[in-house]
Design a protein around this nucleic acid. Structure first.
Length: 656
DNA sequence: TCACGGAATATTTTT
DNA sequence: TATTCCGTGA
């Protein structure tokens, strides 16, 4: 490559003063641009900074931005890094290819679809869609096999996904993780085959397929692989500890031509094993790429010493990890605190009270976060925050695009985009009175026979079923077909059609109607339908304000409530970790499996390392867990035995 | 064939 | 505590 010669010229001048703005290790990572590079980056050690500067450095060296690929965990993370790189250097950095593995796969597959005999107009199935399809096939096959009881659709989908992502046979997944379903292995295999076939026939790809097909493309088509590989001369991967085996495979093939690959991660922060991620990827990287240079970032710039003292002790409990010891030069006064509350509500009141106190001390509301293991853990707190009129935004957990009313509207748009989308046809037809599964099937088949896209519905003889309601749907489609509408106008038309159904179906329809307005607002930003639908599947909005979809978090300063998973990579001045109760965090599901307990520990570690100045754990004492049949009354085992010299204990009371 | 109501059941985290 | 499943009656 041409840049190499200019790089070896030590006198080359750069606009950005890298030496002054980065520490030794960071600088080494930024300036090592050729060959395989593994960066083990402890929490708060400037991982994002390093990646950002490295992008700028490559661009400054004269590498074309389009030849740089930055794979991150969310698209937002990629965008932010590229924006920062742009403000360091110039707008060229915005042209760097960035996104998630899934979005990258989506782009490549649409471009090279023909090589895999795939229709480039494929629809992406999200989890709900995939489960709906599995349910359809489940019923057919369960009837044939004649089994009485059968796992639920969600369980089946989870088994399939696990088998794919970990690249292990389906029966092994059942033996290891679902031993009570051993009798159903054969039927599950049948459903799996039927599922795969159906996806093929109807132009569906689920999340896992995106990765699987991309790997297949790179494996079976050496010419394509070479083209893609040479198109992206420099590849960087963030959060490498949370990639799975397929992703590692993809990467291996992707950079085969030049081996200019940098991965960044922290094995101690691997928290996506449930999704097939394997933190061993990061351990095995040097074997996959002989000659790998390894750089460790150990200086923490985020947290004050007392917080680091705690998190270092905490992660000591992990059995398997790269050894590293984080240090900081930021002294601090306040020790992290563990608070015992008498019950859930007193936990909420304590947190609210403390937040008001912090505000009085001048801490901005958006510099405070409340973190929790599971989304529902914050319900009671949300009520109290509303009562006190403290504005907050909630991140993670409940997903709007998976809620029924949003799904309903999207389904109408999806049949317009891909008329083979049987799942969406069924969904919209079943909304109409007097139409059940069998009528839906008849209509769907009739539409398909017309072979003219969604407008096939207009010419179908709807007398095949007795359902007058179908006429309204025909009118809707006729109207959309008649004139070229903007995407948002199309969405508006669908919403107008759907509102009466919404009112009949849900008591809380006003709130849901607001969500639909927000959905239309999102559509305004898009020009084409396919692009919009793809984004809704791959990067659905996951923030909410007061139970409704929040499009722009801009404006008012807000407290952040977040699941720990969604807090990855972020930081705040003050952090509260609620429900730090043994049996809630770690989650009750993880209690009997050592590997899962380890993951819960890492999750707690991720949560605690988000804090810059203040860290507070709080738990309600004496909560009865029905499924376990025990009274939960100990703090999380991950912090229970930490001495008072590191973690200060106190009890919550109104007088606080 | 559809709609509805009572019973069973699994229950987190997300691309 | 929802959600999903399944049987019954129209």
């Amino acid at each position: 490559m041409q840049p190499i010669s200019s790089l070896s010229d030590g006198r080359r001048r750069f606009r950005i003063p890298y030496e002054a703005e980065l520490n030794t290790s960071q600088l080494e990572a930024v300036t090592t641009t050729e060959g395989p590079l593994l960066v083990i980056a402890g929490a708060g050690s400037g991982k994002t900074r390093t990646l950002t500067y490295r992008v700028a450095r490559l661009v400054e060296m004269g590498v074309s931005p389009a030849q740089i690929l930055l794979l991150t965990f969310t698209r937002k993370a990629a965008q932010q890094m590229l924006q920062r790189a742009s403000s360091l250097l110039d707008s060229r950095c915005e042209k760097v290819a960035g996104g998630t593995f899934h979005s990258f796969a989506n782009t490549m597959l649409r471009r090279y679809a023909s090589q895999l005999e795939l229709d480039p107009g494929f629809s992406i199935l999200d989890r709900v869609d995939a489960e709906a399809l599995i349910n359809l096939l489940r019923k057919e096959i369960a009837a044939r096999v004649g089994q009485r009881s059968f796992p639920r659709k969600g369980t089946i989908a989870a088994i399939f996904s696990r088998s794919i992502n970990k690249i292990i046979p389906l029966e092994d997944v059942v033996y290891d993780d679902y031993p009570h379903l051993i009798d159903s292995v054969e039927a599950l295999n049948d459903i799996f085959l039927a599922y795969r076939k159906h996806k093929r026939q109807h132009n569906f790809l689920d999340f896992d397929d995106l990765l699987v097909f991309l790997r297949q493309l790179l494996t079976t088509r050496p010419d394509v692989r070479q083209r893609i590989s040479s198109a992206y001369q420099y590849v960087m991967v963030d959060e490498y500890q949370d990639t799975n085996k397929i992703q590692a495979d993809i990467l291996y093939r992707l950079v085969g031509e030049h081996r200019n690959i940098m991965v960044v991660g922290d094995d101690s922060q691997s928290i996506y094993a449930f999704r097939g991620a394997n933190f061993k990827n990061i351990m095995q990287f040097p074997q996959a790429f002989p000659g790998t240079r390894i750089i460790t970032l150990e200086e923490n710039y985020r947290s004050v010493q007392p917080i680091l003292d705690l998190t270092n002790v905490m992660i000591e409990q992990a059995r398997e990890k790269y050894s590293k010891k984080l240090f900081t030069r930021r002294p601090g006064l306040a020790k992290p605190v563990l608070v015992e509350a008498s019950d859930e509500n007193s936990q909420s009141l304590f947190v609210v009270d403390r937040i008001k106190q912090l505000q009085r001390q001048g801490v901005a509301l958006d510099q405070i976060a409340v973190l929790f293991r599971a989304s529902f853990h914050s319900f009671d707190l949300e009520i109290e925050l509303n009562r006190e009129e403290i504005p907050f935004i909630k991140v993670g957990g409940f997903k709007f695009v998976e809620s029924a009313h949003i799904k309903d509207v999207l389904a109408h748009l999806r049949v317009i985009a891909n008329c083979e989308d049987r799942i969406s046809w069924y969904r919209i037809l079943l909304l109409i009175e007097k139409i059940g599964p069998s009528s839906a099937q008849k209509i769907y088949e009739a539409v398909r026979r017309q072979a003219c896209g969604y407008t096939g519905l207009l010419t179908v003889d709807t007398k095949i079923v007795r359902a007058p309601g179908i006429k309204r749907l025909q009118e809707l489609f006729a109207g959309i077909d008649a004139q070229p509408l903007s995407l948002a106008a199309t969405g508006q038309a669908v919403v107008k059609y759907y509102l009466p159904i919404l009112k009949d179906t849900y008591d809380d329809h006003p709130k849901r109607a607001k969500d639909l307005e927000q959905l239309v607002a999102i559509m305004e930003r898009y020009r084409d339908l396919d692009h919009f639908l793809t984004d809704m599947a791959l990067e659905p909005p996951n923030t909410s304000i007061g139970d409704t979809l929040a499009v722009d978090a801009a404006g008012q300063q807000r407290l952040v409530l977040s699941t720990v998973h969604s807090a990855k990579g972020l930081e705040w001045h003050s952090v509260f970790i609620i429900w730090a109760l043994d049996g809630r965090f770690p989650s009750p599901h993880a209690l009997y499996k050592e590997a899962e307990i380890e993951e819960e520990l890492r999750l707690m570690y991720v949560a605690a390392t988000r804090a810059r100045e203040n860290l507070t754990f709080i738990y309600p004492d004496g909560v009865y867990d029905r499924s376990l049949g025990v009274l939960l009354n100990r703090p999380s085992r991950f912090i229970d035995m930490i001495p008072e010299s590191i973690l200060q204990k106190q009890t919550a009371g109104y007088w606080e």
